[in-house]
Design a protein around this nucleic acid. Structure first.
Lengths: 221, 221
DNA sequence: GGCGCCATCTTGGTATCCCAAACTGGTATC
DNA sequence: GATACCAGTTTGGGATACCAAGATGGCGCC
Protein backbone atom coordinates (compact mmCIF):
# COMPACT_ATOMS: atom_id res chain seq x y z
CA UNK A 1 0.00 0.00 0.00
CA UNK A 2 1.24 3.48 -0.79
CA UNK A 3 2.41 5.67 2.02
CA UNK A 4 -0.35 8.12 1.23
CA UNK A 5 -3.20 5.73 1.86
CA UNK A 6 -1.35 4.28 4.77
CA UNK A 7 -0.93 7.54 6.63
CA UNK A 8 -4.51 8.50 5.93
CA UNK A 9 -5.91 5.19 7.13
CA UNK A 10 -3.80 4.99 10.26
CA UNK A 11 -4.40 8.58 11.19
CA UNK A 12 -8.14 8.16 10.72
CA UNK A 13 -8.13 5.11 12.95
CA UNK A 14 -6.20 6.95 15.64
CA UNK A 15 -8.65 9.83 15.55
CA UNK A 16 -11.78 7.69 15.45
CA UNK A 17 -10.36 5.44 18.15
CA UNK A 18 -9.74 8.51 20.32
CA UNK A 19 -6.03 7.69 20.54
CA UNK A 20 -5.69 11.34 19.59
CA UNK A 21 -8.21 13.37 21.52
CA UNK A 22 -10.71 15.81 20.04
CA UNK A 23 -9.16 19.27 20.06
CA UNK A 24 -5.54 18.11 20.08
CA UNK A 25 -2.97 19.91 17.98
CA UNK A 26 -1.78 17.90 15.02
CA UNK A 27 1.51 19.27 13.60
CA UNK A 28 2.48 17.92 10.22
CA UNK A 29 5.96 17.22 11.52
CA UNK A 30 4.63 15.11 14.35
CA UNK A 31 2.60 12.96 11.96
CA UNK A 32 5.61 12.76 9.70
CA UNK A 33 7.84 11.27 12.39
CA UNK A 34 5.06 9.20 13.92
CA UNK A 35 4.39 7.31 10.69
CA UNK A 36 7.80 7.54 9.10
CA UNK A 37 6.45 9.32 6.05
CA UNK A 38 7.41 12.63 4.54
CA UNK A 39 5.23 15.70 4.45
CA UNK A 40 3.77 15.05 1.02
CA UNK A 41 1.65 12.03 2.00
CA UNK A 42 0.97 13.66 5.38
CA UNK A 43 -0.54 16.69 3.71
CA UNK A 44 -2.59 14.54 1.37
CA UNK A 45 -3.98 12.65 4.34
CA UNK A 46 -4.80 15.85 6.22
CA UNK A 47 -6.58 17.33 3.22
CA UNK A 48 -8.72 14.22 2.90
CA UNK A 49 -9.48 14.02 6.61
CA UNK A 50 -10.42 17.67 6.53
CA UNK A 51 -13.18 16.98 4.03
CA UNK A 52 -14.41 14.22 6.32
CA UNK A 53 -14.59 16.72 9.15
CA UNK A 54 -12.16 14.79 11.33
CA UNK A 55 -9.45 17.44 11.34
CA UNK A 56 -9.69 21.17 10.87
CA UNK A 57 -7.62 24.31 10.80
CA UNK A 58 -6.89 26.19 13.95
CA UNK A 59 -5.45 29.44 12.74
CA UNK A 60 -2.37 28.27 10.89
CA UNK A 61 -2.14 24.72 12.17
CA UNK A 62 -4.15 21.52 12.19
CA UNK A 63 -6.20 20.17 15.04
CA UNK A 64 -8.39 17.15 15.58
CA UNK A 65 -11.96 18.40 15.30
CA UNK A 66 -13.62 18.79 18.69
CA UNK A 67 -16.84 17.01 19.48
CA UNK A 68 -19.53 19.52 18.59
CA UNK A 69 -22.95 18.92 20.07
CA UNK A 70 -24.64 21.40 17.74
CA UNK A 71 -23.04 19.62 14.81
CA UNK A 72 -24.20 16.24 16.08
CA UNK A 73 -27.78 17.48 16.10
CA UNK A 74 -27.47 18.79 12.57
CA UNK A 75 -25.89 15.57 11.37
CA UNK A 76 -28.83 13.66 12.82
CA UNK A 77 -31.27 15.72 10.74
CA UNK A 78 -29.11 15.18 7.69
CA UNK A 79 -28.78 11.47 8.13
CA UNK A 80 -32.49 11.13 8.78
CA UNK A 81 -33.16 12.69 5.39
CA UNK A 82 -30.70 10.55 3.46
CA UNK A 83 -31.22 7.29 5.33
CA UNK A 84 -34.98 7.48 4.96
CA UNK A 85 -34.63 8.26 1.26
CA UNK A 86 -32.30 5.30 0.82
CA UNK A 87 -34.57 2.98 2.77
CA UNK A 88 -37.59 4.00 0.69
CA UNK A 89 -35.64 3.19 -2.45
CA UNK A 90 -34.70 -0.19 -1.03
CA UNK A 91 -38.31 -0.95 -0.12
CA UNK A 92 -39.23 -0.30 -3.74
CA UNK A 93 -36.76 -2.87 -5.06
CA UNK A 94 -38.12 -6.12 -6.44
CA UNK A 95 -35.41 -8.17 -4.74
CA UNK A 96 -34.98 -7.22 -1.11
CA UNK A 97 -33.34 -10.44 -0.03
CA UNK A 98 -30.13 -8.55 0.75
CA UNK A 99 -31.67 -7.35 4.00
CA UNK A 100 -31.04 -10.86 5.29
CA UNK A 101 -27.31 -10.24 5.04
CA UNK A 102 -27.73 -7.23 7.28
CA UNK A 103 -29.89 -9.18 9.68
CA UNK A 104 -27.07 -11.74 9.91
CA UNK A 105 -24.67 -8.90 10.72
CA UNK A 106 -26.80 -7.95 13.70
CA UNK A 107 -27.05 -11.54 14.88
CA UNK A 108 -23.27 -11.90 14.87
CA UNK A 109 -23.17 -9.86 18.09
CA UNK A 110 -23.88 -11.62 21.34
CA UNK A 111 -23.23 -11.03 25.02
CA UNK A 112 -19.52 -11.81 24.83
CA UNK A 113 -18.82 -9.79 21.73
CA UNK A 114 -16.40 -6.99 22.58
CA UNK A 115 -17.83 -3.50 22.97
CA UNK A 116 -15.76 -2.31 20.05
CA UNK A 117 -17.46 -4.78 17.74
CA UNK A 118 -20.95 -3.72 18.82
CA UNK A 119 -19.96 -0.16 18.06
CA UNK A 120 -18.74 -1.04 14.59
CA UNK A 121 -21.72 -3.21 13.70
CA UNK A 122 -24.10 -0.53 14.96
CA UNK A 123 -22.66 1.88 12.42
CA UNK A 124 -22.29 -0.66 9.63
CA UNK A 125 -25.96 -1.52 9.97
CA UNK A 126 -26.88 1.95 8.77
CA UNK A 127 -24.13 2.13 6.18
CA UNK A 128 -24.86 -1.24 4.61
CA UNK A 129 -28.59 -0.57 4.68
CA UNK A 130 -27.99 2.59 2.70
CA UNK A 131 -25.79 0.71 0.26
CA UNK A 132 -28.70 -1.55 -0.63
CA UNK A 133 -30.50 1.42 -2.17
CA UNK A 134 -28.03 1.30 -5.01
CA UNK A 135 -27.66 5.07 -4.90
CA UNK A 136 -24.00 5.92 -4.52
CA UNK A 137 -24.63 9.42 -3.21
CA UNK A 138 -27.10 8.42 -0.53
CA UNK A 139 -24.69 5.67 0.48
CA UNK A 140 -21.73 8.03 0.74
CA UNK A 141 -23.80 10.57 2.62
CA UNK A 142 -24.76 7.99 5.23
CA UNK A 143 -21.22 6.68 5.50
CA UNK A 144 -19.83 10.18 5.97
CA UNK A 145 -22.49 11.08 8.51
CA UNK A 146 -21.74 7.94 10.52
CA UNK A 147 -18.04 8.77 10.40
CA UNK A 148 -18.78 12.13 11.94
CA UNK A 149 -20.89 10.52 14.64
CA UNK A 150 -18.42 7.73 15.33
CA UNK A 151 -16.32 9.37 18.03
CA UNK A 152 -19.32 10.72 19.86
CA UNK A 153 -20.97 7.31 19.91
CA UNK A 154 -17.74 5.87 21.22
CA UNK A 155 -17.62 8.41 24.00
CA UNK A 156 -21.22 7.86 24.95
CA UNK A 157 -21.64 5.78 28.04
CA UNK A 158 -23.78 3.07 26.57
CA UNK A 159 -25.60 0.82 28.95
CA UNK A 160 -26.70 -2.64 27.90
CA UNK A 161 -30.30 -1.46 27.78
CA UNK A 162 -29.56 1.15 25.14
CA UNK A 163 -27.78 -1.38 22.97
CA UNK A 164 -30.52 -3.99 23.17
CA UNK A 165 -33.08 -1.30 22.45
CA UNK A 166 -31.13 -0.22 19.37
CA UNK A 167 -30.87 -3.80 18.16
CA UNK A 168 -34.61 -4.29 18.60
CA UNK A 169 -35.26 -1.17 16.56
CA UNK A 170 -32.79 -2.29 13.90
CA UNK A 171 -34.61 -5.60 13.57
CA UNK A 172 -37.99 -3.91 13.31
CA UNK A 173 -36.72 -1.69 10.53
CA UNK A 174 -35.41 -4.69 8.62
CA UNK A 175 -38.70 -6.52 9.08
CA UNK A 176 -40.66 -3.64 7.59
CA UNK A 177 -38.15 -3.32 4.75
CA UNK A 178 -38.37 -7.00 3.99
CA UNK A 179 -42.14 -6.63 3.57
CA UNK A 180 -41.59 -3.62 1.34
CA UNK A 181 -43.61 -1.41 3.70
CA UNK A 182 -41.79 1.84 2.95
CA UNK A 183 -43.94 4.08 5.14
CA UNK A 184 -43.62 1.89 8.20
CA UNK A 185 -39.90 1.31 7.65
CA UNK A 186 -39.35 5.06 7.23
CA UNK A 187 -41.37 5.80 10.37
CA UNK A 188 -39.36 3.31 12.42
CA UNK A 189 -36.04 4.55 11.05
CA UNK A 190 -36.89 8.18 11.74
CA UNK A 191 -37.88 7.33 15.28
CA UNK A 192 -34.70 5.36 15.77
CA UNK A 193 -32.48 8.18 14.52
CA UNK A 194 -34.25 10.87 16.52
CA UNK A 195 -34.20 8.73 19.66
CA UNK A 196 -30.51 7.92 19.21
CA UNK A 197 -29.70 11.56 18.73
CA UNK A 198 -31.54 12.58 21.88
CA UNK A 199 -29.87 9.94 24.01
CA UNK A 200 -26.47 10.74 22.51
CA UNK A 201 -26.67 14.49 22.99
CA UNK A 202 -28.11 14.17 26.47
CA UNK A 203 -25.44 11.73 27.50
CA UNK A 204 -22.62 13.86 26.14
CA UNK A 205 -24.00 17.07 27.60
CA UNK A 206 -24.12 15.40 31.00
CA UNK A 207 -20.61 14.00 30.69
CA UNK A 208 -19.18 17.12 29.21
CA UNK A 209 -17.27 18.10 32.27
CA UNK A 210 -15.79 14.65 32.63
CA UNK A 211 -14.82 14.48 28.99
CA UNK A 212 -13.09 17.84 29.17
CA UNK A 213 -11.20 16.58 32.19
CA UNK A 214 -9.92 13.74 30.00
CA UNK A 215 -8.57 16.36 27.62
CA UNK A 216 -11.34 16.06 25.04
CA UNK A 217 -12.62 19.29 23.56
CA UNK A 218 -16.42 19.26 23.55
CA UNK A 219 -18.28 22.30 22.36
CA UNK A 220 -21.85 22.88 23.51
CA UNK A 221 -24.94 22.86 21.34
CA UNK B 1 -4.90 35.11 -1.80
CA UNK B 2 -2.68 32.11 -1.27
CA UNK B 3 -1.59 30.11 -4.27
CA UNK B 4 -3.40 27.10 -2.91
CA UNK B 5 -6.86 28.65 -2.90
CA UNK B 6 -6.07 30.39 -6.13
CA UNK B 7 -5.18 27.29 -8.09
CA UNK B 8 -8.14 25.44 -6.69
CA UNK B 9 -10.58 28.23 -7.49
CA UNK B 10 -9.27 28.91 -10.98
CA UNK B 11 -9.08 25.26 -11.88
CA UNK B 12 -12.62 24.67 -10.66
CA UNK B 13 -13.87 27.58 -12.75
CA UNK B 14 -12.10 26.27 -15.83
CA UNK B 15 -13.64 22.83 -15.34
CA UNK B 16 -17.14 24.08 -14.55
CA UNK B 17 -16.93 26.57 -17.41
CA UNK B 18 -15.97 23.73 -19.75
CA UNK B 19 -12.74 25.49 -20.68
CA UNK B 20 -11.27 22.07 -19.94
CA UNK B 21 -13.51 19.43 -21.41
CA UNK B 22 -14.92 16.42 -19.53
CA UNK B 23 -12.54 13.50 -19.97
CA UNK B 24 -9.45 15.59 -20.69
CA UNK B 25 -6.11 14.59 -19.21
CA UNK B 26 -4.91 16.89 -16.48
CA UNK B 27 -1.18 16.46 -15.78
CA UNK B 28 0.05 18.09 -12.60
CA UNK B 29 2.90 19.66 -14.55
CA UNK B 30 0.51 21.29 -16.99
CA UNK B 31 -1.50 22.88 -14.18
CA UNK B 32 1.74 23.95 -12.55
CA UNK B 33 2.91 25.88 -15.59
CA UNK B 34 -0.58 27.11 -16.47
CA UNK B 35 -1.07 28.84 -13.13
CA UNK B 36 2.52 29.57 -12.25
CA UNK B 37 2.34 27.61 -9.03
CA UNK B 38 4.43 24.72 -7.83
CA UNK B 39 3.23 21.18 -7.51
CA UNK B 40 2.35 21.32 -3.82
CA UNK B 41 -0.62 23.68 -4.18
CA UNK B 42 -1.53 21.91 -7.40
CA UNK B 43 -1.73 18.61 -5.58
CA UNK B 44 -3.83 20.18 -2.83
CA UNK B 45 -6.23 21.59 -5.39
CA UNK B 46 -6.55 18.26 -7.18
CA UNK B 47 -7.23 16.41 -3.95
CA UNK B 48 -10.00 18.85 -3.10
CA UNK B 49 -11.52 18.77 -6.57
CA UNK B 50 -11.42 15.01 -6.43
CA UNK B 51 -13.72 14.99 -3.41
CA UNK B 52 -16.06 17.29 -5.31
CA UNK B 53 -16.15 14.77 -8.13
CA UNK B 54 -14.79 17.22 -10.70
CA UNK B 55 -11.54 15.38 -11.34
CA UNK B 56 -10.71 11.73 -10.99
CA UNK B 57 -7.88 9.26 -11.42
CA UNK B 58 -7.26 7.58 -14.70
CA UNK B 59 -4.78 4.89 -13.90
CA UNK B 60 -1.89 6.87 -12.53
CA UNK B 61 -2.85 10.29 -13.83
CA UNK B 62 -5.62 12.82 -13.36
CA UNK B 63 -8.51 13.53 -15.69
CA UNK B 64 -11.47 15.85 -15.68
CA UNK B 65 -14.46 13.71 -14.74
CA UNK B 66 -16.62 12.82 -17.72
CA UNK B 67 -20.30 13.68 -17.79
CA UNK B 68 -21.99 10.58 -16.43
CA UNK B 69 -25.69 10.23 -17.16
CA UNK B 70 -26.15 7.46 -14.61
CA UNK B 71 -24.51 9.67 -12.02
CA UNK B 72 -26.76 12.60 -12.92
CA UNK B 73 -29.82 10.47 -12.26
CA UNK B 74 -28.46 9.38 -8.90
CA UNK B 75 -27.57 12.92 -7.94
CA UNK B 76 -31.14 13.96 -8.72
CA UNK B 77 -32.47 11.40 -6.24
CA UNK B 78 -29.96 12.54 -3.67
CA UNK B 79 -30.71 16.21 -4.06
CA UNK B 80 -34.43 15.56 -3.93
CA UNK B 81 -33.94 13.96 -0.51
CA UNK B 82 -31.79 16.73 0.92
CA UNK B 83 -33.54 19.68 -0.71
CA UNK B 84 -36.95 18.53 0.43
CA UNK B 85 -35.65 17.97 3.94
CA UNK B 86 -34.13 21.45 3.98
CA UNK B 87 -37.28 23.03 2.62
CA UNK B 88 -39.43 21.33 5.24
CA UNK B 89 -37.16 22.70 7.93
CA UNK B 90 -37.46 26.16 6.46
CA UNK B 91 -41.24 25.92 6.32
CA UNK B 92 -41.18 25.16 10.03
CA UNK B 93 -39.25 28.31 10.90
CA UNK B 94 -41.09 31.13 12.62
CA UNK B 95 -39.41 33.76 10.47
CA UNK B 96 -39.53 32.86 6.81
CA UNK B 97 -39.05 36.38 5.50
CA UNK B 98 -35.69 35.37 4.02
CA UNK B 99 -37.51 33.72 1.13
CA UNK B 100 -38.09 37.25 -0.17
CA UNK B 101 -34.37 37.62 -0.72
CA UNK B 102 -34.42 34.54 -2.90
CA UNK B 103 -37.47 35.82 -4.74
CA UNK B 104 -35.53 38.99 -5.49
CA UNK B 105 -32.70 36.88 -6.86
CA UNK B 106 -35.07 35.31 -9.34
CA UNK B 107 -36.49 38.68 -10.34
CA UNK B 108 -33.02 40.02 -11.11
CA UNK B 109 -33.07 37.99 -14.33
CA UNK B 110 -34.88 39.42 -17.31
CA UNK B 111 -34.88 38.90 -21.06
CA UNK B 112 -31.55 40.62 -21.66
CA UNK B 113 -29.71 38.94 -18.82
CA UNK B 114 -26.85 36.84 -20.22
CA UNK B 115 -27.36 33.12 -20.42
CA UNK B 116 -24.50 32.59 -18.01
CA UNK B 117 -26.28 34.58 -15.33
CA UNK B 118 -29.52 32.63 -15.69
CA UNK B 119 -27.50 29.47 -15.26
CA UNK B 120 -25.87 30.74 -12.09
CA UNK B 121 -29.05 32.07 -10.54
CA UNK B 122 -30.84 28.84 -11.38
CA UNK B 123 -28.32 26.95 -9.24
CA UNK B 124 -28.07 29.56 -6.52
CA UNK B 125 -31.82 29.44 -6.06
CA UNK B 126 -31.54 25.89 -4.81
CA UNK B 127 -28.36 26.49 -2.85
CA UNK B 128 -29.61 29.59 -1.06
CA UNK B 129 -32.97 27.98 -0.39
CA UNK B 130 -31.16 25.13 1.33
CA UNK B 131 -29.08 27.58 3.32
CA UNK B 132 -32.23 29.03 4.86
CA UNK B 133 -32.85 25.74 6.64
CA UNK B 134 -29.96 26.58 8.93
CA UNK B 135 -28.65 23.04 8.62
CA UNK B 136 -25.04 23.17 7.48
CA UNK B 137 -25.00 19.57 6.25
CA UNK B 138 -28.13 19.83 4.16
CA UNK B 139 -26.77 23.07 2.74
CA UNK B 140 -23.42 21.57 1.80
CA UNK B 141 -25.11 18.52 0.33
CA UNK B 142 -27.23 20.70 -1.95
CA UNK B 143 -24.28 22.86 -2.91
CA UNK B 144 -22.15 19.84 -3.74
CA UNK B 145 -24.95 18.22 -5.71
CA UNK B 146 -25.46 21.39 -7.74
CA UNK B 147 -21.73 21.54 -8.40
CA UNK B 148 -21.88 18.07 -9.87
CA UNK B 149 -24.83 19.01 -12.02
CA UNK B 150 -23.37 22.33 -13.11
CA UNK B 151 -21.50 21.24 -16.23
CA UNK B 152 -24.36 19.10 -17.46
CA UNK B 153 -26.83 21.96 -17.07
CA UNK B 154 -24.43 24.17 -18.96
CA UNK B 155 -24.21 21.68 -21.79
CA UNK B 156 -27.95 21.25 -21.97
CA UNK B 157 -29.55 23.05 -24.84
CA UNK B 158 -32.00 25.14 -22.89
CA UNK B 159 -34.79 26.77 -24.76
CA UNK B 160 -36.54 29.84 -23.41
CA UNK B 161 -39.59 27.76 -22.60
CA UNK B 162 -37.65 25.50 -20.24
CA UNK B 163 -36.20 28.48 -18.41
CA UNK B 164 -39.50 30.28 -17.97
CA UNK B 165 -41.05 27.03 -16.80
CA UNK B 166 -38.30 26.58 -14.23
CA UNK B 167 -38.75 30.14 -13.00
CA UNK B 168 -42.50 29.63 -12.63
CA UNK B 169 -41.88 26.49 -10.60
CA UNK B 170 -39.29 28.28 -8.48
CA UNK B 171 -41.79 31.03 -7.67
CA UNK B 172 -44.48 28.53 -6.78
CA UNK B 173 -42.12 26.77 -4.39
CA UNK B 174 -41.28 30.06 -2.71
CA UNK B 175 -44.96 30.96 -2.43
CA UNK B 176 -45.74 27.71 -0.65
CA UNK B 177 -42.71 28.12 1.59
CA UNK B 178 -43.75 31.65 2.50
CA UNK B 179 -47.10 30.31 3.68
CA UNK B 180 -45.33 27.60 5.65
CA UNK B 181 -47.14 24.89 3.70
CA UNK B 182 -44.43 22.26 3.96
CA UNK B 183 -46.30 19.46 2.20
CA UNK B 184 -47.21 21.60 -0.79
CA UNK B 185 -43.75 23.12 -1.02
CA UNK B 186 -42.17 19.67 -0.82
CA UNK B 187 -44.52 18.33 -3.50
CA UNK B 188 -43.68 21.20 -5.84
CA UNK B 189 -39.95 20.92 -5.23
CA UNK B 190 -39.96 17.17 -5.83
CA UNK B 191 -41.83 17.65 -9.07
CA UNK B 192 -39.44 20.36 -10.15
CA UNK B 193 -36.37 18.25 -9.47
CA UNK B 194 -37.74 15.15 -11.14
CA UNK B 195 -38.87 17.15 -14.16
CA UNK B 196 -35.53 18.90 -14.44
CA UNK B 197 -33.72 15.63 -14.26
CA UNK B 198 -35.83 14.06 -16.99
CA UNK B 199 -35.37 17.00 -19.33
CA UNK B 200 -31.66 17.15 -18.58
CA UNK B 201 -30.94 13.46 -19.12
CA UNK B 202 -33.11 13.32 -22.24
CA UNK B 203 -31.44 16.35 -23.71
CA UNK B 204 -27.94 15.07 -23.02
CA UNK B 205 -28.70 11.57 -24.26
CA UNK B 206 -29.94 13.08 -27.53
CA UNK B 207 -26.93 15.36 -27.87
CA UNK B 208 -24.46 12.73 -26.80
CA UNK B 209 -23.03 12.22 -30.26
CA UNK B 210 -22.59 15.95 -30.79
CA UNK B 211 -20.98 16.42 -27.41
CA UNK B 212 -18.50 13.64 -28.06
CA UNK B 213 -17.66 15.28 -31.35
CA UNK B 214 -16.75 18.40 -29.39
CA UNK B 215 -14.30 16.27 -27.41
CA UNK B 216 -16.49 15.90 -24.31
CA UNK B 217 -16.54 12.48 -22.71
CA UNK B 218 -20.13 11.53 -21.93
CA UNK B 219 -20.84 8.12 -20.46
CA UNK B 220 -24.32 6.64 -20.88
CA UNK B 221 -26.78 5.88 -18.13
C1' DG C 1 7.19 41.51 40.99
C1' DG C 2 4.76 42.44 36.77
C1' DC C 3 4.75 43.78 32.08
C1' DG C 4 6.60 44.29 27.60
C1' DC C 5 9.88 43.41 24.07
C1' DC C 6 13.07 40.82 21.37
C1' DA C 7 15.53 36.44 20.03
C1' DT C 8 14.41 31.90 18.94
C1' DC C 9 11.87 28.08 17.74
C1' DT C 10 7.99 26.04 15.62
C1' DT C 11 5.03 25.34 11.84
C1' DG C 12 2.61 25.40 7.62
C1' DG C 13 3.29 27.07 2.58
C1' DT C 14 6.06 26.71 -1.38
C1' DA C 15 9.57 25.26 -4.56
C1' DT C 16 12.56 21.60 -6.21
C1' DC C 17 14.77 17.33 -6.71
C1' DC C 18 14.74 12.37 -7.16
C1' DC C 19 12.66 8.05 -8.24
C1' DA C 20 10.00 4.28 -10.00
C1' DA C 21 6.44 3.03 -12.92
C1' DA C 22 4.05 3.58 -17.11
C1' DC C 23 3.67 5.16 -21.57
C1' DT C 24 5.65 6.06 -26.29
C1' DG C 25 7.93 5.55 -30.37
C1' DG C 26 11.01 3.42 -33.07
C1' DT C 27 13.61 -0.44 -34.51
C1' DA C 28 14.95 -4.96 -35.40
C1' DT C 29 13.43 -9.47 -36.00
C1' DC C 30 10.50 -13.05 -37.64
C1' DG D 1 3.82 -6.35 -42.49
C1' DA D 2 3.12 -7.44 -37.79
C1' DT D 3 5.03 -7.93 -33.42
C1' DA D 4 8.05 -7.99 -29.65
C1' DC D 5 11.33 -5.48 -27.32
C1' DC D 6 14.12 -1.68 -25.72
C1' DA D 7 15.44 3.24 -24.84
C1' DG D 8 13.74 7.61 -23.84
C1' DT D 9 10.28 10.43 -22.00
C1' DT D 10 6.44 11.56 -19.24
C1' DT D 11 4.13 11.48 -14.90
C1' DG D 12 2.69 11.01 -10.28
C1' DG D 13 4.54 9.78 -5.48
C1' DG D 14 7.78 10.94 -2.16
C1' DA D 15 11.50 13.60 0.14
C1' DT D 16 13.80 17.73 1.35
C1' DA D 17 15.35 22.55 1.56
C1' DC D 18 13.88 27.19 2.33
C1' DC D 19 10.89 30.88 3.85
C1' DA D 20 7.69 33.83 6.26
C1' DA D 21 4.50 34.22 9.81
C1' DG D 22 3.13 33.09 14.30
C1' DA D 23 3.96 31.12 18.90
C1' DT D 24 7.11 30.91 22.88
C1' DG D 25 9.92 32.00 26.40
C1' DG D 26 13.36 34.44 28.65
C1' DC D 27 15.40 38.71 29.81
C1' DG D 28 15.36 43.40 30.99
C1' DC D 29 13.03 47.54 32.16
C1' DC D 30 9.65 49.91 34.80
Amino acid sequence: MSQMQNVETQLRQMILGLEIGPGEKLPERWIESRFGASRTPVRAALLRLETEGLVGRDGRGWTVSPINLAELEQVAVYREAVEVAALRLTCGLADRSAVDVIEAMLESCDHDTPREEWHRVGMDFHIELARLSGNEFLFRAVRDAMTRLSRARWLEVRDEAALSRAWTEHRAILAAARLGDADEAARLLSGHIVGSRDRLVTSLANDRRGLRARGFAVVAA
